[in-house]
Amino acid sequence: MKEKNLKQAKGTFALKAGLARMLKGGVIMDVTNAEQAKIAEDAGAVAVMALERVPSDIRAQGGVARMSDPEMIIGIQKAVTIPVMAKCRIGHFVEAQVLEALEVDYIDESEVLTPADEEFHIDKTRFTTPFVCGARNLGEAVRRLQEGAAMIRTKGEAGSGNIVEAVRHIRAVDKGIAELKEFLRQKQMKKIKDKAAEYRVSPELLIQIAKLGRLPVVNFAAGGIATPADAALCMQLGVDGVFVGSGIFKSGNPRKRAKGIVDAVAHFTDKKKIAEASKGLGDAMAGLEIGTLATKYAERGI
Protein backbone atom coordinates (compact mmCIF):
# COMPACT_ATOMS: atom_id res chain seq x y z
CA MET A 1 0.00 0.00 0.00
CA LYS A 2 3.03 2.32 -0.31
CA GLU A 3 2.39 5.12 -2.77
CA LYS A 4 5.05 6.31 -5.14
CA ASN A 5 5.05 9.98 -5.92
CA LEU A 6 4.35 9.57 -9.61
CA LYS A 7 3.70 12.41 -12.01
CA GLN A 8 0.41 10.84 -12.91
CA ALA A 9 -1.13 7.72 -11.41
CA LYS A 10 -4.33 5.71 -11.32
CA GLY A 11 -5.61 3.25 -8.75
CA THR A 12 -3.65 4.75 -5.85
CA PHE A 13 -4.93 4.34 -2.32
CA ALA A 14 -5.56 8.10 -2.10
CA LEU A 15 -7.89 7.89 -5.10
CA LYS A 16 -9.67 4.82 -3.73
CA ALA A 17 -10.20 6.40 -0.33
CA GLY A 18 -10.90 9.72 -2.07
CA LEU A 19 -14.04 8.49 -3.81
CA ALA A 20 -15.39 7.31 -0.45
CA ARG A 21 -14.79 10.81 0.91
CA MET A 22 -17.06 12.20 -1.80
CA LEU A 23 -19.80 9.79 -0.68
CA LYS A 24 -19.73 10.99 2.93
CA GLY A 25 -23.01 12.18 4.35
CA GLY A 26 -24.84 10.15 1.73
CA VAL A 27 -27.02 7.09 1.35
CA ILE A 28 -26.02 4.09 -0.78
CA MET A 29 -28.96 1.92 -1.76
CA ASP A 30 -29.21 -1.76 -2.75
CA VAL A 31 -30.98 -2.12 -6.09
CA THR A 32 -31.78 -5.17 -8.19
CA ASN A 33 -32.73 -3.59 -11.52
CA ALA A 34 -32.52 -0.38 -13.57
CA GLU A 35 -35.93 0.83 -12.43
CA GLN A 36 -34.99 0.63 -8.75
CA ALA A 37 -31.67 2.32 -9.54
CA LYS A 38 -33.56 5.26 -11.06
CA ILE A 39 -35.77 5.49 -7.97
CA ALA A 40 -32.63 5.55 -5.81
CA GLU A 41 -31.02 8.28 -7.91
CA ASP A 42 -34.23 10.33 -7.93
CA ALA A 43 -34.38 10.07 -4.14
CA GLY A 44 -30.87 11.55 -3.89
CA ALA A 45 -28.76 8.43 -3.26
CA VAL A 46 -25.02 9.06 -3.70
CA ALA A 47 -24.46 5.59 -5.15
CA VAL A 48 -26.25 2.32 -5.75
CA MET A 49 -25.24 -1.25 -4.92
CA ALA A 50 -26.21 -3.56 -7.78
CA LEU A 51 -27.16 -7.04 -6.62
CA GLU A 52 -29.42 -9.85 -7.75
CA ARG A 53 -31.38 -10.33 -4.56
CA VAL A 54 -31.62 -7.99 -1.59
CA PRO A 55 -30.34 -9.56 1.64
CA SER A 56 -33.80 -10.32 3.05
CA ASP A 57 -34.59 -12.41 -0.05
CA ILE A 58 -31.24 -14.19 0.18
CA ARG A 59 -32.11 -14.94 3.78
CA ALA A 60 -35.61 -16.20 2.90
CA GLN A 61 -34.66 -18.20 -0.19
CA GLY A 62 -31.37 -19.62 1.07
CA GLY A 63 -28.88 -21.31 -1.25
CA VAL A 64 -25.48 -20.02 -2.32
CA ALA A 65 -25.51 -16.27 -2.97
CA ARG A 66 -23.02 -15.18 -5.65
CA MET A 67 -21.92 -12.12 -7.60
CA SER A 68 -24.66 -10.69 -9.83
CA ASP A 69 -25.02 -11.32 -13.55
CA PRO A 70 -22.80 -8.80 -15.39
CA GLU A 71 -25.67 -7.99 -17.73
CA MET A 72 -27.78 -6.79 -14.85
CA ILE A 73 -24.88 -4.67 -13.50
CA ILE A 74 -24.34 -3.10 -16.94
CA GLY A 75 -28.07 -2.34 -17.17
CA ILE A 76 -27.87 -0.44 -13.90
CA GLN A 77 -24.69 1.39 -14.96
CA LYS A 78 -26.54 2.58 -18.05
CA ALA A 79 -29.59 3.67 -16.07
CA VAL A 80 -27.88 6.04 -13.62
CA THR A 81 -25.08 8.63 -13.52
CA ILE A 82 -24.12 8.12 -9.86
CA PRO A 83 -21.44 5.55 -8.86
CA VAL A 84 -22.42 1.89 -9.15
CA MET A 85 -21.06 -0.60 -6.64
CA ALA A 86 -21.38 -4.39 -6.71
CA LYS A 87 -20.74 -7.27 -4.33
CA CYS A 88 -18.40 -10.21 -4.62
CA ARG A 89 -18.02 -13.15 -2.25
CA ILE A 90 -15.42 -12.98 0.51
CA GLY A 91 -12.13 -14.28 -0.85
CA HIS A 92 -13.48 -14.71 -4.40
CA PHE A 93 -10.86 -12.66 -6.21
CA VAL A 94 -12.03 -13.76 -9.64
CA GLU A 95 -15.50 -12.37 -9.05
CA ALA A 96 -13.65 -9.17 -8.05
CA GLN A 97 -11.66 -9.30 -11.30
CA VAL A 98 -14.94 -9.59 -13.23
CA LEU A 99 -16.37 -6.59 -11.38
CA GLU A 100 -13.21 -4.63 -12.09
CA ALA A 101 -13.51 -5.52 -15.79
CA LEU A 102 -17.10 -4.21 -15.70
CA GLU A 103 -15.69 -0.96 -14.27
CA VAL A 104 -17.91 -0.84 -11.22
CA ASP A 105 -16.91 2.12 -9.06
CA TYR A 106 -16.56 0.20 -5.78
CA ILE A 107 -16.47 -3.51 -4.93
CA ASP A 108 -18.12 -4.71 -1.73
CA GLU A 109 -16.40 -7.88 -0.52
CA SER A 110 -19.51 -8.86 1.30
CA GLU A 111 -20.52 -11.32 4.00
CA VAL A 112 -24.08 -11.16 2.63
CA LEU A 113 -22.93 -13.42 -0.20
CA THR A 114 -21.79 -16.94 0.61
CA PRO A 115 -18.04 -16.82 1.40
CA ALA A 116 -15.71 -18.46 -1.13
CA ASP A 117 -12.72 -18.64 1.20
CA GLU A 118 -12.97 -19.24 4.91
CA GLU A 119 -9.40 -18.21 5.64
CA PHE A 120 -8.36 -15.40 3.32
CA HIS A 121 -9.98 -12.22 2.16
CA ILE A 122 -9.06 -10.77 -1.24
CA ASP A 123 -5.70 -8.99 -1.52
CA LYS A 124 -7.30 -5.68 -2.40
CA THR A 125 -4.00 -3.91 -3.13
CA ARG A 126 -3.85 -5.78 -6.45
CA PHE A 127 -6.89 -3.96 -7.81
CA THR A 128 -7.44 -0.53 -9.36
CA THR A 129 -11.08 -0.58 -8.26
CA PRO A 130 -11.52 0.32 -4.58
CA PHE A 131 -13.05 -2.05 -2.02
CA VAL A 132 -15.42 -1.58 0.87
CA CYS A 133 -15.56 -4.28 3.55
CA GLY A 134 -17.75 -5.00 6.54
CA ALA A 135 -16.51 -5.08 10.14
CA ARG A 136 -18.04 -5.94 13.50
CA ASN A 137 -15.24 -4.43 15.57
CA LEU A 138 -11.91 -2.63 15.30
CA GLY A 139 -9.95 -5.85 14.80
CA GLU A 140 -11.94 -6.78 11.70
CA ALA A 141 -11.82 -3.20 10.41
CA VAL A 142 -8.02 -2.91 10.63
CA ARG A 143 -7.47 -6.35 9.11
CA ARG A 144 -9.51 -5.25 6.12
CA LEU A 145 -7.52 -2.00 5.94
CA GLN A 146 -4.29 -3.95 6.05
CA GLU A 147 -5.58 -6.01 3.10
CA GLY A 148 -6.19 -2.78 1.18
CA ALA A 149 -9.84 -1.85 1.78
CA ALA A 150 -10.41 1.87 1.13
CA MET A 151 -13.72 2.13 2.95
CA ILE A 152 -15.25 0.30 5.92
CA ARG A 153 -18.87 -0.33 6.84
CA THR A 154 -20.40 -2.04 9.82
CA LYS A 155 -21.70 -5.50 9.05
CA GLY A 156 -24.85 -5.02 11.07
CA GLU A 157 -27.19 -7.87 10.27
CA ALA A 158 -28.21 -7.58 6.63
CA GLY A 159 -31.78 -8.39 5.69
CA SER A 160 -32.97 -8.33 9.30
CA GLY A 161 -34.53 -4.85 9.33
CA ASN A 162 -33.13 -4.70 12.86
CA ILE A 163 -30.71 -1.89 13.68
CA VAL A 164 -29.36 -3.45 16.87
CA GLU A 165 -26.36 -5.16 15.28
CA ALA A 166 -25.23 -2.08 13.33
CA VAL A 167 -25.35 -0.08 16.56
CA ARG A 168 -23.38 -2.79 18.33
CA HIS A 169 -20.71 -2.71 15.63
CA ILE A 170 -20.43 1.09 15.53
CA ARG A 171 -19.94 1.11 19.30
CA ALA A 172 -17.46 -1.78 19.19
CA VAL A 173 -15.25 0.04 16.65
CA ASP A 174 -15.47 3.21 18.79
CA LYS A 175 -14.53 1.28 21.91
CA GLY A 176 -11.51 -0.21 20.16
CA ILE A 177 -10.37 3.23 19.03
CA ALA A 178 -10.88 4.72 22.50
CA GLU A 179 -8.68 1.98 23.93
CA LEU A 180 -5.90 2.76 21.43
CA LYS A 181 -6.15 6.49 22.17
CA GLU A 182 -5.73 5.77 25.86
CA PHE A 183 -2.65 3.61 25.18
CA LEU A 184 -1.15 6.39 23.10
CA ARG A 185 -1.94 9.04 25.72
CA GLN A 186 -0.15 6.98 28.35
CA LYS A 187 2.66 6.27 25.87
CA GLN A 188 2.17 2.52 26.37
CA MET A 189 3.67 1.43 23.08
CA LYS A 190 4.03 -2.11 24.29
CA LYS A 191 0.27 -2.38 24.66
CA ILE A 192 -0.27 -0.98 21.16
CA LYS A 193 2.17 -3.56 19.81
CA ASP A 194 0.33 -6.31 21.67
CA LYS A 195 -2.95 -5.12 20.18
CA ALA A 196 -1.37 -5.08 16.74
CA ALA A 197 -0.29 -8.69 17.25
CA GLU A 198 -3.77 -9.60 18.48
CA TYR A 199 -5.39 -7.91 15.47
CA ARG A 200 -2.67 -9.26 13.13
CA VAL A 201 -1.88 -5.81 11.70
CA SER A 202 1.07 -3.41 11.79
CA PRO A 203 1.46 -1.23 14.90
CA GLU A 204 1.87 1.84 12.66
CA LEU A 205 -1.73 1.49 11.49
CA LEU A 206 -2.97 1.40 15.09
CA ILE A 207 -0.82 4.39 16.08
CA GLN A 208 -2.24 6.34 13.15
CA ILE A 209 -5.79 5.47 14.25
CA ALA A 210 -5.00 6.48 17.83
CA LYS A 211 -3.68 9.83 16.64
CA LEU A 212 -6.65 10.46 14.33
CA GLY A 213 -9.17 9.24 16.88
CA ARG A 214 -11.06 7.52 14.07
CA LEU A 215 -10.57 5.01 11.26
CA PRO A 216 -8.24 6.42 8.58
CA VAL A 217 -10.87 5.79 5.90
CA VAL A 218 -14.53 6.63 5.51
CA ASN A 219 -16.77 4.46 7.71
CA PHE A 220 -20.43 3.82 6.86
CA ALA A 221 -23.18 1.99 8.73
CA ALA A 222 -24.88 -0.98 7.09
CA GLY A 223 -27.07 -3.93 7.96
CA GLY A 224 -30.58 -3.47 9.33
CA ILE A 225 -31.37 0.18 8.53
CA ALA A 226 -35.11 0.36 7.81
CA THR A 227 -36.29 3.88 8.72
CA PRO A 228 -35.10 7.50 8.45
CA ALA A 229 -34.65 7.47 12.23
CA ASP A 230 -32.46 4.33 12.01
CA ALA A 231 -30.25 6.11 9.48
CA ALA A 232 -30.03 9.30 11.57
CA LEU A 233 -29.26 7.22 14.67
CA CYS A 234 -26.20 5.75 12.95
CA MET A 235 -25.16 9.23 11.78
CA GLN A 236 -25.46 10.66 15.27
CA LEU A 237 -23.39 7.74 16.55
CA GLY A 238 -20.63 9.08 14.30
CA VAL A 239 -20.56 7.14 11.03
CA ASP A 240 -19.90 8.99 7.76
CA GLY A 241 -22.94 7.71 5.86
CA VAL A 242 -25.26 4.72 5.46
CA PHE A 243 -25.95 1.75 3.23
CA VAL A 244 -29.58 0.71 3.02
CA GLY A 245 -30.20 -2.79 1.71
CA SER A 246 -33.57 -4.45 1.95
CA GLY A 247 -34.98 -1.52 3.95
CA ILE A 248 -36.14 0.45 0.92
CA PHE A 249 -37.36 -1.96 -1.74
CA LYS A 250 -38.90 -4.38 0.78
CA SER A 251 -41.06 -1.58 2.21
CA GLY A 252 -44.56 -0.42 1.28
CA ASN A 253 -43.52 2.77 -0.52
CA PRO A 254 -39.90 2.57 -1.71
CA ARG A 255 -39.89 5.97 -3.45
CA LYS A 256 -41.04 7.86 -0.40
CA ARG A 257 -38.95 5.86 2.05
CA ALA A 258 -35.79 6.31 -0.05
CA LYS A 259 -36.31 10.07 -0.08
CA GLY A 260 -37.09 10.10 3.64
CA ILE A 261 -33.86 8.28 4.47
CA VAL A 262 -31.79 10.64 2.27
CA ASP A 263 -33.37 13.67 3.95
CA ALA A 264 -32.82 12.24 7.43
CA VAL A 265 -29.13 11.60 6.71
CA ALA A 266 -28.56 15.05 5.18
CA HIS A 267 -30.20 16.69 8.24
CA PHE A 268 -29.25 14.05 10.80
CA THR A 269 -28.97 16.46 13.74
CA ASP A 270 -32.29 18.19 13.05
CA LYS A 271 -35.07 16.34 14.87
CA LYS A 272 -37.83 18.31 13.17
CA LYS A 273 -36.52 17.40 9.74
CA ILE A 274 -36.18 13.74 10.77
CA ALA A 275 -39.80 13.82 11.96
CA GLU A 276 -40.85 15.32 8.63
CA ALA A 277 -38.85 12.68 6.74
CA SER A 278 -40.53 9.89 8.75
CA LYS A 279 -44.11 10.92 7.96
CA GLY A 280 -46.48 8.61 6.08
CA LEU A 281 -43.92 6.24 4.61
CA GLY A 282 -46.24 3.23 4.63
CA ASP A 283 -45.12 -0.10 6.03
CA ALA A 284 -41.47 -0.60 6.90
CA MET A 285 -39.96 -3.94 5.99
CA ALA A 286 -40.85 -6.73 8.39
CA GLY A 287 -38.04 -7.00 10.91
CA LEU A 288 -36.49 -10.08 12.47
CA GLU A 289 -35.27 -10.74 16.01
CA ILE A 290 -31.54 -11.41 15.83
CA GLY A 291 -31.91 -14.35 18.23
CA THR A 292 -34.21 -16.17 15.81
CA LEU A 293 -31.85 -16.03 12.81
CA ALA A 294 -30.52 -19.34 11.50
CA THR A 295 -27.53 -17.67 9.82
CA LYS A 296 -25.80 -14.58 11.10
CA TYR A 297 -24.05 -13.01 8.14
CA ALA A 298 -21.95 -10.88 10.48
CA GLU A 299 -20.12 -13.98 11.67
CA ARG A 300 -18.74 -14.54 8.18
CA GLY A 301 -15.28 -13.28 7.25
CA ILE A 302 -13.72 -12.18 10.52
Binding site: A9, K10, A14, L19, P83
Partner: peptide
Protein backbone atom coordinates in the same frame (compact mmCIF):
# COMPACT_ATOMS: atom_id res chain seq x y z
CA UNK B 1 -20.11 15.17 -15.84
CA UNK B 2 -17.89 12.11 -15.24
CA UNK B 3 -16.16 12.90 -18.53
CA UNK B 4 -12.96 11.02 -17.73
CA UNK B 5 -14.92 7.82 -17.12
CA UNK B 6 -15.64 5.72 -14.05
CA UNK B 7 -13.59 5.31 -10.89
CA UNK B 8 -10.94 3.15 -12.61
CA UNK B 9 -10.10 6.22 -14.71
CA UNK B 10 -9.76 8.52 -11.69
CA UNK B 11 -6.19 9.82 -11.45
CA UNK B 12 -3.84 12.03 -9.51
CA UNK B 13 -1.28 14.24 -11.19
CA UNK B 14 1.19 17.05 -10.69
CA UNK B 15 -0.30 20.10 -12.35
CA UNK B 16 0.82 23.66 -12.95
CA UNK B 17 -1.61 26.50 -12.36
CA UNK B 18 -1.35 30.28 -12.47
CA UNK B 19 -1.20 30.04 -8.66
CA UNK B 20 1.76 27.66 -8.73
CA UNK B 21 2.55 23.97 -9.06
CA UNK B 22 0.53 21.48 -7.03
CA UNK B 23 -0.66 17.92 -6.82
CA UNK B 24 -4.29 17.29 -7.75
CA UNK B 25 -6.82 14.48 -7.39
CA UNK B 26 -9.33 13.88 -10.18
CA UNK B 27 -12.07 11.58 -8.90
CA UNK B 28 -14.75 10.68 -11.46
Amino acid sequence: RNAYGRQNDSFEADISTTLGAMHAMFIR
